[in-house]
Design a binder for these strands. Structure first.
Lengths: 221, 221
DNA sequence: GTCTATACAGCGATAGAC
DNA sequence: GTCTATCGCTGTATAGAC
């Protein structure tokens, strides 16, 4: 799947994707820019280059488009995060690796996913299963932070607050990235360094943490 | 204005506010929970206890409600932040004070403002003046960070990335708070400590920074 | 698989009585 | 200042031809 490593604009311009994929691509971008409710099915259809009713041949409802995007994102991120969290490594290393991988995943995504995690979307009762999975992911992250504090690696902090702050940073960093920042310039490492350094009882340990995180082998890789 | 220091639920239940204020209060909460576009004028009216057309006696349009909320928030935060940024103090002290004051402002707000800063609202062309003011505030914050790095107080970081990360944390911390966390439990200081510690070249200086920030006297106080 | 035509519900906003 | 009644528009989704 080399397409995921190319700049999004190139993908959109050159690669002849299936209509279903192009709907997901254009819908995600419009959701990110305008919000879900402000984006009409007519706008999505126009961006794809088809008529509005033709959308409904590929997705039964507008909500189904959102579900497909959630599935693509959380369906991958949640198992991977749990795998990282379960490794027999220091909490700082696991947290670093989680941050790095999540940011890379968002950076390399063919879709701009930053519009999905606003309360107006994921907070709707119809999407409650996805909200649960997101909360579960936050709890896994909070668990790593709590273990790090207990082990003396991290300072004393409210782990829930930290996991929420991380969620806020990730969404926001993504917005910045999709706003034109060159991908691959090290955003993933830059953010991971910033967050982990702020938590480490001994910030001088950051370099070793980053090095060990980079060497981690996840199950199935 | 002692009402601002009471829990919001109490305010809503006991204090007989003017209709205009109650519209702002209920609209802000609905915008935060559902998003702007998903919130209908009928829902706002129902929450206030009047009929839908009666809203338009107090606000000419639905957008005018949003404008009033932006004015209440940014109209106060922007001048205050600029005043803090201009003080002859170390960057760490100014950043700490900004974070603390902004969080207190959000905590004590009679309105839940977390719904306004989603792209679907502030990104709309009609609200471009408010987006400009928000961006200006971010640039002021980035300026403090940049000065801190230049002075050797802060580590080497991308100041724009940091200001975006801070924006993400603030919105998210607010969501957490409005979700039932007890106010006044030190959220403002907890978040400010976390962020400033992550930036300080010498994290041990945090205690002194916090102490000096608390003693800062702003012009006109 | 895409089209034209259209159903039909819900939206913001207005008119005018009280 | 609030009400009832209603307008005009836009939204999602469907029907059925090609």
């Amino acid at each position: 799947m080399v397409a995921r490593r190319l700049p999004r604009a190139l993908v959109a311009a050159c690669v002849p994707l299936a209509t279903r994929e192009r709907i997901l691509f254009e819908a995600a971008h419009l959701f990110a820019a305008q919000g879900f409710h402000a984006t009409t099915t007519r706008q999505i259809a126009e961006a794809v280059g088809i008529r509005q009713p033709s959308l409904f041949h590929h997705f039964a409802t507008k909500d189904a488009i959102v579900e497909a995007l959630f599935d693509w994102d959380l369906g991958l991120a949640l198992p991977r995060t749990r795998a990282v969290a379960a490794l027999p490594e220091p909490a700082a290393v696991r947290l670093y690796r989680y941050l790095h991988d999540d940011l890379r995943h968002l950076e390399e995504a063919p879709y701009n996913l930053s519009g999905l995690y606003a309360d107006e979307v994921i907070g709707r009762p119809e999407f409650a299963p996805w909200a649960e999975r997101r909360d579960l992911l936050h709890r896994v992250v909070a668990g790593i932070v709590r273990e790090g504090t207990a082990a003396g690696e991290f300072i004393e902090v409210d782990a829930t607050l930290v996991s929420q702050a991380i969620a806020g940073i990730l969404v926001r960093a993504l917005t910045l990235h999709s706003g034109g920042r060159a991908p691959g310039r090290g955003l993933a490492d830059e953010v991971a360094r910033l967050v982990v350094r702020g938590l480490l009882a001994d910030p001088a340990a950051l370099e070793e943490v980053q090095g060990r995180a980079a060497l981690l082998r996840l199950p199935g890789e």
